[in-house]
């Protein structure tokens, strides 16, 4: 009985949490700040969410591309199929690693920062004080951050994949001696725009939505204390990472299993 009740309590708690998160998102999105005031806010957030994540994305993308090329080459060369290095790297990056790894890095780099920032604004009564000034914090604080994350992550994922492919070119072509023409042309022959690139972009758009939503909601709903903020930040990273990986499986099954 006791356990059953606890289970029920948890489930109800989860569902009402989801409902609150949905409500928050809807009111943030449907009460857009007017463009003249909203655009500078969005710009600022694009800077702190997007530009500041650029370095980690560039570096990780480069290294992952290089590692993929190195690993792939040693396997493919055994079959005399090193010409397929290009498509192997490109497809792994475009379909999986680009969207997923950049979403995970984004959750750690930008998502946690968003949660902590909004949570601290709540704890220091800045959100209350906005409300009392008749400025809706959902519009003023949450909406620009949400949009900035939603716009930034797909761009970051594309940058990640592109840099990764360049890294693979560096290792495969410049160091290991795969022919550059082969590298590109075999890749071009195998990579399809609609199937691979577009699907990858769709994935990263979905991840962007999920990660940013979790991040702003966790901050907005956190308990306004030090522990509350630290718990909210942790759960932003954990929950959005798990959700990204789970959704990735679902999306992959829908997109690529024909």
């Amino acid at each position: 009985m006791q356990q059953l009740q606890i289970l029920g309590h948890t489930i109800i708690g989860q569902i009402s949490g989801l409902g609150r998160a949905l409500l928050m998102l809807l009111s943030a999105l449907f009460h857009m700040p007017n463009p003249r005031k909203g655009f500078p806010l969005l710009l600022n957030q694009l800077y702190s969410v997007g530009v500041l994540s650029l370095v980690i994305i560039l570096v990780s993308g480069l290294f992952i591309g290089m590692v993929l090329a190195l690993q792939g080459y040693t396997i493919l060369v055994g079959y005399g199929a090193e010409a397929s290095l290009g498509p192997m790297v490109a497809l792994s990056l475009l379909r999986e690693l680009g969207p997923v790894v950049s979403a995970l890095l984004f959750a750690g780099r930008a998502g946690s920062a968003l949660t902590a920032e909004i949570g601290l604004m709540k704890a220091t009564e800045q959100l209350s004080s906005l409300e009392m000034m008749a400025v809706d914090p959902l519009r003023r604080v949450v909406a620009p951050r949400f949009w900035a994350g939603f716009i930034s992550l797909p761009l970051l994922a594309a940058i990640f994949s592109a840099v990764g492919i360049l890294g693979a070119h560096l290792v495969g072509v410049d160091w290991l001696g795969v022919d550059s023409g082969t590298f590109w042309s075999v890749m071009q022959a195998q990579v399809s725009f609609e199937k691979d690139i577009l699907n990858g972009i769709i994935k990263s758009v979905v991840f962007a939505f999920v990660v940013t939503w979790i991040a702003v909601y966790k901050g907005y709903a956190c308990e306004p204390t030090s522990e509350g903020i630290s718990r909210a930040t942790t759960s932003t990273v954990v929950q959005s990472s798990l959700l990204v990986l789970g959704l990735d499986f679902v999306l992959t099954a829908l997109m690529f299993a024909n």
């Binding site: 800077y47 650029l54 761009l155 970051l156 940058i159 990579v191 399809s192 725009f193 690139i197 972009i201």
Partner: peptide
Amino acid sequence: MSKKIELLVGLFAAIGIAALLMLALKVADS
């Protein structure tokens, strides 16, 4: 809003779009 932020965000968008173009044109040869 400071000029520097505008510039960096512009640069970010440009890199992002360049990456998308590279994927579309050079990688997929669409």
